[in-house]
C-alpha cells in the first residue's frame, strides 16, 4: 500500500506549494497557546439576567421572528453596487424552455461562426 512518507508530501504546483499537515500542526499548537492565554480570563457570567438579552441601545426586544435578519436582506452595500448586473442576469433566466433552446441555437451559431467561417475564408 501507500508508503508512510507519501502522506507527508507537499503539494507542488510548480509555482508554489501547500502542505496541510504543517498548517494543521501549527494550528493545533497555536490553539493550545491561545487556550492557555484564554484560560486567564474569567469564565462565567450571570445566566438568566438581563445582561444576556440582545443589546438594542435600550430599546425593547421585538419578537424573535423580527429579530432575525433574513437572507435576502444580507449584503446590502454589496448588492447595491451589483444590482444592475443582477437584474440583467435575472431577466436572462426566464424559466421558459423555448428560451433555453434559443440560447443553444445562439451558441451553436457563435461556435459555427468562430470555428468554421474563419477557416473557410482563409
Amino acid at each position: 500500500m501507500l508508503p508512510f512518507e507519501s502522506l507527508l508530501k507537499t503539494l507542488q504546483t510548480g509555482s508554489g506549494f501547500w502542505n496541510p499537515l504543517v498548517w494543521i500542526v501549527a494550528i493545533i499548537v497555536a490553539l493550545l497557546v491561545v487556550l492557555i492565554i484564554r484560560g486567564f480570563g474569567k469564565k462565567d457570567y450571570k445566566k438568566g439576567t438581563s445582561q444576556t438579552q440582545a443589546f438594542l441601545s435600550g430599546n425593547p426586544e421585538y419578537d424573535k421572528e423580527r429579530m432575525h435578519i433574513k437572507g435576502s436582506n444580507v449584503y446590502w452595500g454589496f448588492s447595491e453596487i451589483l444590482n444592475w448586473i443582477i437584474n440583467l442576469l435575472k431577466k436572462m433566466h426566464t424559466g421558459n424552455v423555448s428560451d433555453y433552446v434559443l440560447w443553444f441555437v445562439i451558441i451553436i451559431a457563435i461556435l459555427f461562426l468562430s470555428i468554421i467561417i474563419p477557416a473557410g475564408a482563409i
Binding site: G41, D44, Y45, K46, Q51, A54, M67
Partner: peptide
Amino acid sequence: KLFVKENIVPEN
C-alpha cells in the same frame, strides 16, 4: 481588563 470581565453569552 477584558480578562477580568464577565464572558457573557447572549441568549440569542
